[in-house]
Design a protein around this nucleic acid. Structure first.
Lengths: 344, 344
DNA sequence: ATTAGCTGCTAATACGTATCAGCACTTCTG
DNA sequence: CAGAAGTGCTGATACGTATTAGCAGCTAAT
């Protein structure tokens, strides 16, 4: 109970009748130095170590070696589901898997309350060899400091430059969105709407960019750069503009719109096609499978972790990687009904 | 890129024209020593710190102070759901919540493959101030070494002594099981069976103990101390023994038995009551809500974390805590049908 | 017989921080 | 005016390990 003094190499040395340096050499000597310790001595030391159960203090080790085989995982929000929103789980799973394969442990630095900063008084982050950064909102000042500093990190999700290129692994939302637009067009849609933000987070911008790149001037009939607006208002705007298909960035909006449309006795996708940009968590549950694209969260996290380890171990240069997002064949995108077509 | 040398207090000292010791005093001086540094000097040092973005190296800090405000979480199995079995999630959530409240970070030490031992060559565990241990199977030798050693830890789940009392927070399964037995008896059941192991893990033993304590000699008609046996065999044995109610430790067994019974055209709970000992993950999904008791996983994890911090910070004595498990009113326990009763 | 090389070890140092003892100087006290 | 007390700082050391330089003592070679 009364905190027995920890065993140190000095204790082992004394017990084995050698010096501390010899103990250290026995434990992790290079082939060169190891050859200079006779078997007899080595075995004596090893026996003492076995008998006492000594293990080297990783803290002291880290001090001198500089590496820990620990990766930090930084998030502003708490990492575990406080209710249903287990947004982080697939990421954490991917990180853990990769870390384990590579022989690293994980230091979880989750947003302590609201005000947790990377650069605070109590920055335990540097205990790790490097750090994976999770979460959409990320203070840009801090990102810039990270970029400027020497601490290895990799972001999950694309990041704009912050005083220099940011290493990241993200989802390739722009082409994925483009592909869905093309698919809508091939179904015959010529009057397409967009509901969601078009600026702010990089992932948002990418979606809008992919959308606007593929949709023609004549085809984009209306845009609602807003989130969480009452679905009936949205529907009114959509139909006033003669839209046959709507692209939505937020699943919640899509669900609301779908529900409102059904309430009006409309059929989806006959009267209105709905495309969601990215498979959000629990997208399956509402009973309707929205047409969308898959976000390979686990793969992103794995790739980010591997990239981080490359940076840590080999001081690899900054990489930026966007992973392909597979289209998800749902049941909310189809040909516009002839009636609707006639309207045109 | 080329790993710029980390800033140290010496650098700060030089820039501010003071000594390293002064920098350290400015950063974390006691009221006594702080009073001896004039405001002017302190501000000069603080400015340099702000300008350079210096942060103290937590490793060096830990070396001298001995504490880190980091808690380890050790599991043999990977901590995150590799598929459906997110067994650990509620525990991790509870631990994270408590750790965050108490101002600790988490070091995840998940079973690296199959052979991860706490006492291995690469024991990174001691980097933390203490450690929460998760998982049912736990090498008893290692537990004994932990008990004997000076490293603070707390187990989630009751543990038998291992060369000394083990600090833990567990679920109080025995009384919870007893309560369910009493409830079955009050429904009129007089011929009760048990399916599940009766030895091995502490949690298993507790269930059997609670069961056998409450059930009378005459009432226990048969026991199948085995898991995963074909459900039809089980049913045959149960009915041969004239059981009207069966207590099952494994949800999988319960599901199989229920299914097999329905296939035979039997009604549950009329023809057979089924009680599951503990709400296993995703117990809701099969469509049928088994009568059982709740395992307060989050609360257990929180309590364990708080207990660990008490041990770390105040060298508190070993505590052992069992949390109440609330009965879960399901729809698989009811009065035996009169027909069945007549059989008696 | 000197030197070169090998063997078996150890002393010393560095890593970055916290902390204590204490130095040089000023100001107050009697 | 000697001593005490206070002020503003610094030097030294400890923490536990890894690592390098190098010291004895011995053997073999020139």
């Amino acid at each position: 109970m009364a905190a027995v003094k920890r065993l140190t190499q000095r204790d082992i040395a004394q017990l084995a009748g050698v010096s501390q340096a010899t103990v250290s050499l026995v434990l992790n000597g290079t082939p060169l130095s190891r050859s200079r310790i006779p078997t007899e001595t080595r075995e004596r030391v090893e026996k003492v170590i076995r008998d006492t159960g000594y293990v080297a203090d990783p803290v002291a080790r880290k001090m001198v070696k500089g590496l820990n085989r620990i990766l930090g995982v930084f998030t502003y929000e708490p990492a575990f589901p406080s209710g249903q929103a287990d947004f982080f789980t697939p990421f954490l799973f991917g990180i853990e898997e990769a870390a384990q394969t590579l022989g690293y442990d994980l230091l979880l630095l989750t947003g302590a309350g609201q005000q947790r900063k990377i650069f605070g008084d109590n920055v335990r982050l540097r205990l790790a060899d490097g750090c994976v950064i999770l979460g959409r909102k990320f203070d840009n000042t801090e990102l810039a400091r990270l970029v400027a500093g020497d601490f290895p990190f990799v972001a999950v999700g694309r990041r704009d430059d912050a005083g220099g290129p940011v290493p990241y692994v993200g989802g390739d939302y722009a082409p994925a969105t483009s592909a869905l637009v093309e698919r809508a067009k091939s179904f015959g849609h010529r009057r397409i709407a967009y509901v969601g933000l078009n600026e702010g987070a990089e992932s948002t911008v990418d979606r809008w960019y992919g959308f606007s790149r593929s949709v023609g001037e004549a085809e984009l009939v209306t845009s609602i750069f807003e989130v969480g607006r009452p679905p009936n208002e949205i529907l009114d705007i959509l139909f006033a503009a003669g839209a046959t298909c709507v692209f939505v960035t937020e699943l919640a909006d899509a669900i609301a719109i779908e529900h409102a449309a059904r309430t009006r006795g409309l059929s989806i996708p006959d009267d209105l096609s709905i495309v969601v940009l990215g498979n959000h968590i629990r997208a399956e549950e509402p009973g309707r499978r929205f047409t969308s694209f898959a976000i390979p969260r686990e793969a992103m996290a794995r790739a980010a972790t591997e990239m981080l380890v490359r940076r840590v171990e080999h001081d690899a240069p900054v990489e930026q990687l966007l992973l392909h997002c597979e289209p998800l064949e749902g049941d909310t995108l189809g040909a516009p009904s002839s009636k609707t077509k006639k309207t045109k």
